[in-house]
């Protein structure tokens, strides 16, 4: 590649990133004035919208609803997906390739359609939709993704390690605790992060399956579609920063495992 092409390439990539972040940045900019109508550039920059948002009880309720949904989705999906990944990537069995294709189907499925179908399903069974049914709905979509994430890690696993551990005197339980799970842990953590963030930010499934409860994206969507208010921008920024912060912490943990996890017991002979 010539020098000129290198510059063109760099500019292209910069443009892609800038365009992707402009709208997100716009929310941040809009939130920095507390006026009835949006009029940029602001005459009076202020963080009034944030103090308003933080003083509203609703802000807390929305975050808590989203949080409990996302946490439950994370825990349940990681447990189920770990088992699923073993069948997906670890064992060689007849029917595996069919299983692999069936598992990814919900990913290739329009989410609003899935949400509607689940809504009909719940009402046919006589369940009133609440945040709990939303947990179930999120899992239908998140579980396949987490299964893939853990499988990617599992594909690099040499099953002979388990034989070696058995051969060296480890019981089945010890094999799981000492060999399999420690090896898988980065996959489990990234899988968990995926599950949390995807559930935290999900709109199309939540809209149909939360009933009277409201998650953050749902609330934002209903406000955005109706009327502009600076407090909406402020809450959008708070919700986004919360998830970005969580992402950063988890990625940091993964880094630490990568560099220091090798020391295991934390013992430096």
């Amino acid at each position: 590649m010539t020098r000129a092409w290198k510059y063109v390439g760099a500019i292209w990539l910069a443009l892609v990133v800038v365009l992707l972040y402009l709208p997100i940045l716009s929310v941040g900019l809009a939130s920095l004035a507390n006026t009835r109508y949006m009029r940029f550039p602001h005459r009076n920059w202020s963080i009034g919208a944030y103090t308003d948002a933080l003083s509203q009880h609703e802000t807390l309720v929305l975050h808590l609803t989203s949080l409990k949904v996302a946490l439950l989705v994370t825990v349940l999906s990681v447990i189920l997906a770990t088992l699923g990944a073993m069948a997906f990537a670890r064992y060689d069995w007849r029917g595996r390739s069919a299983f692999q294709k069936v598992v990814v189907l919900p990913i290739f499925f329009p989410q609003p359609v899935l949400g509607l179908a689940l809504l009909l399903f719940f009402s046919a069974l006589g369940f009133t939709p609440t945040w709990k049914t939303a947990v179930f709905a999120h899992m239908v979509w998140v579980l396949p993704i987490v299964t893939l994430v853990i499988s990617i890690r599992l594909f690099g696993y040499d099953p002979a390690q388990e034989d070696a551990a058995r051969d060296l005197g480890a019981s089945r339980w010890q094999v799981l605790r000492e060999v399999t799970l420690p090896y898988l842990s980065p996959g489990l953590i990234s899988g968990g992060l995926f599950a949390f963030l995807l559930s935290w930010s999900n709109l199309p499934l939540s809209i149909f399956t939360t009933g009277a409860d409201t998650t953050l994206p749902e609330w934002l969507f209903s406000r955005v579609a109706t009327n502009y208010a600076p407090v909406v921008s402020a809450i959008a920024v708070i919700a986004t920063l919360a998830s970005v912060l969580l992402g950063c912490v988890v990625i940091l943990i993964l880094r630490l495992i990568d560099t220091h996890g090798i020391k295991g017991d934390g013992d430096h002979g």
Partner: peptide, 13 residues
């Protein structure tokens, strides 16, 4: 046993 792939535990020292 010493395995063909060695089967070392890569996540340990």
């Amino acid at each position: 046993m010493v395995f063909q792939s060695l089967a070392l535990f890569d996540h340990r020292s």
